[in-house]
């Protein structure tokens, strides 16, 4: 059986090498790929969409439909984690509470909500690591900057590398950092499961909704130009704005999905105790 697999690998590799026989030269400006459609994108991007970054205009406008599904793929990943991992069960059987002043830890068997919300006690994880003051302070300081940067990346996609996916990832990372450096419950206090769920759906909904809005306004799906009917701009600028709206949607979904995947995976779907 092992040799069979080896044979398969060799076969695939040989087909791959065989394919290279007819490859155009590396970076050849006369290769078919750079003669057929690409020049159109390069020349017309700015006048069609008023977006100088060709990557963004191809991504979100010329082939915006693909990107919509890519965003949906991310949404689906979050959805799959929710469906497969989420356990709507009550809290862990055993809970631990720490008296903040004295540092005494109470191990409570069975369920209780008595000490929740108490000022003197804090709930801690069963495998508790004492709070690290350096980490907490630094992340508290850094997180706003990270989020600011994320917004910058989202907004700056028109001009420089960036856009919804990258910005969303950075935004999500900031919240995951919060959950790691404090604990899962702190992260969930800032943005709880319901919010994440709604955000992840809302983001893709914004993308698809903008497309559908174009449809309702009487043009093809995702034909942002028609948004000029409701926006006080010309069709080209409307395309640019449409792309921006879409990018925002992508960022929201990516952020929410990243965080919720982290939450579900790290807490085995209970959203009770994290890493």
């Amino acid at each position: 059986m092992r040799y069979l697999y080896l044979l398969l690998v060799v076969l695939s590799a040989s087909v791959l090498f065989y394919a290279t026989l007819d490859f155009p030269q590396w970076g050849d400006p006369n290769s078919p790929a750079s003669l057929h459609v690409s020049p159109v994108y390069l020349q017309r991007s700015l006048e069609d969409t008023s977006v100088p970054n060709v990557v963004t205009s191809v991504l979100a406008d010329y082939r915006g439909y693909d990107t919509m599904f890519e965003t949906t793929v991310i949404f689906t990943a979050g959805l799959a984690c929710f469906v497969l991992l989420r356990v709507f069960a009550p809290k862990m059987k055993d809970t631990y509470y720490r008296h903040i002043q004295s540092g005494v830890v109470l191990h409570i068997k069975g369920q209780t909500t008595l000490l929740d919300g108490s000022r003197d006690f804090e709930r801690i994880d069963s495998r508790w690591v004492p709070a690290d003051i350096i980490l907490k302070t630094i992340s508290r300081f850094l997180i706003p900057f990270i989020q600011l940067f994320a917004l910058y990346v989202v907004a700056h996609g028109h001009h420089s590398p960036g856009g919804g996916f990258q910005g969303g990832v950075i935004l999500g990372a900031s919240i995951i950092l919060l959950s790691i450096s404090f604990d899962l419950r702190t992260g969930l206090e800032k943005i709880h499961e319901r919010g994440l769920g709604l955000f992840s759906a809302t983001g893709v909904f914004i993308y698809t909704g903008i497309g559908a809005l174009c449809l309702i306004l009487g043009k093809e799906f995702l034909n942002y130009g028609v948004l000029s009917k409701i926006l006080p701009v010309d069709p080209v600028m409307a395309r640019s704005l449409g792309i921006f709206g879409v990018e925002v949607g992508v960022a929201i979904t990516v952020m929410a999905v990243m965080v919720s995947i982290y939450n579900y995976v790290s807490s085995e779907g209970r959203l009770d105790e994290g890493l």
Binding site: V129, L135, I138, S139, F141, L142, F145
Partner: peptide, 20 residues
Amino acid sequence: VFIYLSSPTATHCIVDAAIR
């Protein structure tokens, strides 16, 4: 500046984890 903030913190956390 941010490298100066984050790199030592990261190192600190890793070492901390190793000691624990």
